[in-house]
C-alpha cells in the first residue's frame, strides 16, 4: 500500500515538473526542480540496481520532454548513487535499519542537512552540464543557489502539508 502511494506520488511529481514547474522561468534561468524528491521518496532497499535504473530512466523521461540530451538523467543518477553515503553520514544508520527508514520519523535538523546537501549537489551538476564549459561559472553558481532555494522551499512546504494531513 505504502509502495503504491510512493509510486503514485513520483508520477504526480513528474507531471507537475513537466507541465508546471518547467515553465516558471523566474528571471529567465531560475526554476524549481522538485523532481529531486524522487531521491527522498524512493524506499531504501538492499539491492540498489532497481533504484539506480529507476533514477536513470526518471531523469531520461524529463530529458525527453525538455530536449536536454541527458543532463537530468546524469545528475539524478549521480545523487541517487551517493544517497546511501549521505544517509550513513547524516543519520548514522546501518544496513539493518534500511527497511524501517522513513524521512518523516527522523529529526528535522538531520533531514534538513540531508535534503539541502543532495539538492545543492544535484542542481550544481545539472547547471554545469547544461553550461557544458568552464566559461560563465559564476552564472552556474548563481543559478544553483537561487534554484536550490526555490526547490527547497517548495519541497519543505509540500512535505509539511502532506505530513500534517497524514496525522489527522
Amino acid at each position: 500500500m505504502n509502495k503504491i502511494r510512493v509510486f503514485l506520488w513520483i508520477i504526480v511529481i513528474l507531471f507537475l515538473q513537466i507541465l508546471v514547474l518547467n515553465n516558471i522561468n523566474f528571471s529567465q534561468h531560475i526554476n524549481p526542480y522538485l523532481y529531486i524528491s524522487f531521491i527522498f521518496l524512493f524506499p531504501l532497499t538492499k539491492n540498489r540496481f532497481i533504484f539506480l535504473t529507476a533514477a536513470f530512466f526518471y531523469g531520461l523521461i524529463l530529458d525527453f520532454f525538455s530536449d536536454t540530451g541527458g543532463i537530468h538523467a546524469a545528475s539524478l543518477l549521480f545523487v541517487a548513487f551517493f544517497r546511501l553515503y549521505f544517509i550513513k553520514l547524516f543519520f548514522r544508520k546501518n544496513n539493518i535499519d534500511y527497511l524501517l527508514f522513513n524521512l518523516h520519523s527522523e529529526a528535522f535538523g538531520q533531514v534538513f542537512n540531508y535534503v539541502v546537501t543532495i539538492t545543492i549537489i544535484h542542481h550544481f551538476m545539472l547547471f554545469s552540464l547544461d553550461n557544458f564549459s568552464f566559461n560563465n561559472i559564476n552564472i552556474v553558481l548563481l543559478n544553483t543557489l537561487y534554484s536550490s532555494i526555490f526547490t527547497l522551499v517548495l519541497y519543505f512546504l509540500g512535505s509539511y502539508i502532506l505530513r500534517k494531513k497524514q496525522l489527522h
Partner: peptide, 20 residues
C-alpha cells in the same frame, strides 16, 4: 553498484554530447 553507476552515467554523457 559503482560499475553499474558508471555504465549508466556514461550513457547519459553520450546522450548529452550527441544532443549538442
Amino acid at each position: 553498484y559503482f560499475l553499474f553507476f558508471l555504465f549508466l552515467e556514461l550513457i547519459a554523457f553520450q546522450l548529452i554530447i550527441n544532443n549538442l
